[in-house]
């Protein structure tokens, strides 16, 4: 790890101010990606601005038909929340299966969504549930938030304060795990609200995205059989030593079918 300046602000405004003063600052939420990267000397921020001391970033609140989860809420807290379990059990289940206990007790929803790892779990849920990402500056819809591999709509000095998830009638997340890292090789989150079906896909491509072709079919026939006709474009898929593009494309359909089955 290289040397850096350490900031521990107690307000969002303080965090933003520290970022604006830093030469090459980084917000650190749970640090589950950032700190290993720094330890391996692959990142060398001049300043790290730790968000753990900002009370306004924590907590889970129910607001009518949606649930707002503070950015610094850990995966373990989301998994254990009776409100999340009651309103969107698939989201609680997703959080319960991220990483290992150490990661779940440190890693946060805001950190995961802001980092936008191509194989992270939360982006699939944010997309499929049509969540709203609340930031220090604005509100960003899920469809506009994830812009590329490790890229989001966030500006340099903008940080996520909370994510608001509308309740779905039925939802399920199916994850095909990388046997080594246990990240998603393919993760598919299916959410059904009224007649509207949304599919969020992670792991398969460089950036989590909506499965528009799958949604198109499922909107008219919400069943696994309907998926057989869908062509998943192999050339858009990621490929690595764990899964080829062809296999990932196949898994997208299998995981979607299983998620649909779990919804019904």
């Amino acid at each position: 790890m290289y040397d850096f300046s350490y900031h521990n602000p107690d307000s969002v405004a303080g965090a933003v101010s520290a970022m604006n003063k830093a030469e090459d600052g980084k917000f650190v939420a749970g640090g589950q990606t950032m700190l290993p990267t720094m330890k391996h000397r692959l990142a060398s921020p001049s300043d790290i601005i730790v968000l753990g001391g900002i009370a306004e970033l924590s907590g889970i609140t129910v607001d009518g038909d949606s649930i707002s989860i503070g950015a610094m809420t850990t995966h373990a807290e989301v998994a254990a929340s009776s409100d999340v379990q009651a309103m969107i059990p698939a989201l609680a289940a997703l959080a319960a299966n991220i990483g290992d206990p150490a990661v779940r007790n440190c890693g946060t929803i805001g950190g995961s969504v802001a980092n936008n790892d191509p194989a992270a779990d939360y982006p699939a849920a944010v997309i499929a549930l049509g969540a709203t990402v609340k930031t220090s500056k604005r509100e960003i819809s899920a469809d506009d938030f994830f812009t590329g591999m490790f890229e989001t709509a966030l500006e340099e000095d903008e940080l996520i304060t909370a994510i608001s998830f509308p309740k779905a009638d039925a939802a399920a997340y199916m994850k095909f795990e990388n046997p080594a890292s246990r990240y998603a090789i393919v993760g598919v989150f299916v959410a059904k609200t009224g007649d509207d079906v949304r599919v969020g896909i992670t792991g398969a491509t460089p950036c989590a995205h909506r499965g528009m072709r799958l949604e198109g079919v499922l909107n008219s026939n919400f069943s696994g059989d309907a998926l057989e006709s869908v062509e998943i474009p192999v050339d858009k898929m990621n490929a690595d030593i764990h899964a080829s593009a062809e296999y990932r494309a196949h898994l997208v359909k299998v995981m979607t079918r299983r998620a649909v089955a779990a919804c019904s």
């Binding site: 046997p179 080594a180 030593i241 764990h242």
Partner: peptide
């Protein structure tokens, strides 16, 4: 049998150089 496979690429870089890619 099921998980562990140490892999070098054709240039001799170790692809499975951490537990993120080498499955125990």
């Amino acid at each position: 049998a099921l998980l562990e496979g140490c892999r070098y690429d054709s240039e001799g870089q170790l692809i499975t150089a951490s537990f993120m890619d080498y499955a125990m």
